[in-house]
Design a protein around this nucleic acid. Structure first.
Length: 152
DNA sequence: GCCAACGTTGGC
DNA sequence: GCCAACGTTGGC
């Protein structure tokens, strides 16, 4: 049982979009970074939980939680030339990119902002507070998970 | 919109 | 295998 942080631009896919999805489930497609892919493909398991993080928007930070409801499987959007995440180098017989299904878990009553996360010395280990970190999927430790919940 | 930080590409 | 050039991310 592990914890993760899922980054998404709300203009692209927000936590509201997740809540409005059928069964409140979506497939987390479009990850095109090898380190983030490896986290998903090699370590994510059904039952893992995650923070939903809104990036590149007016209120940057953690807005809620999700849980993982599928094993990793090939990201089929990489095979679709019409998809914006199309990658001709991902071969269906040897897929390069993977995804998992996640379901809505909770909406926080407010955004726990990146600024607050950075200001909390107990969260200095969180990758998302590190300068220049662009990973869209990052692991979260148990203590980090608990501390963020205590800030809600 | 700016720009720093980072990842990827490709020439050599 | 090096590394400059380029494209992207994402905070501000």
């Amino acid at each position: 049982m592990a914890y993760w942080l899922f980054k998404s631009e709300p203009s692209c896919f927000s936590i509201d979009d997740l809540q409005n999805s059928p069964k409140k489930i979506t497939h987390w497609d479009g990850v095109r970074n090898y380190q983030a892919r490896n986290f998903m493909r090699d370590q994510m398991q059904v039952g893992d939980e995650g923070f939903f993080y809104h990036s590149n928007c007016s209120e940057v930070g953690i807005i809620g939680t999700v849980s993982i409801v599928s094993k990793p499987y090939p990201d089929h959007t990489a095979f679709d030339p019409k998809d914006e995440h199309f990658d001709p180098k991902s071969d269906p017989d040897n897929p390069r990119w993977f995804m998992v299904d996640v379901t809505f878990k909770a909406l926080f009553p407010r955004v726990i902002t990146l600024r607050e996360l950075k200001e909390n010395p107990e969260l200095a280990s969180m990758l998302v507070v590190r300068k220049g970190n662009r990973l869209s999927i990052t692991p979260i430790q148990q203590d980090e998970w608990d501390i963020v919940h205590s800030m809600v």
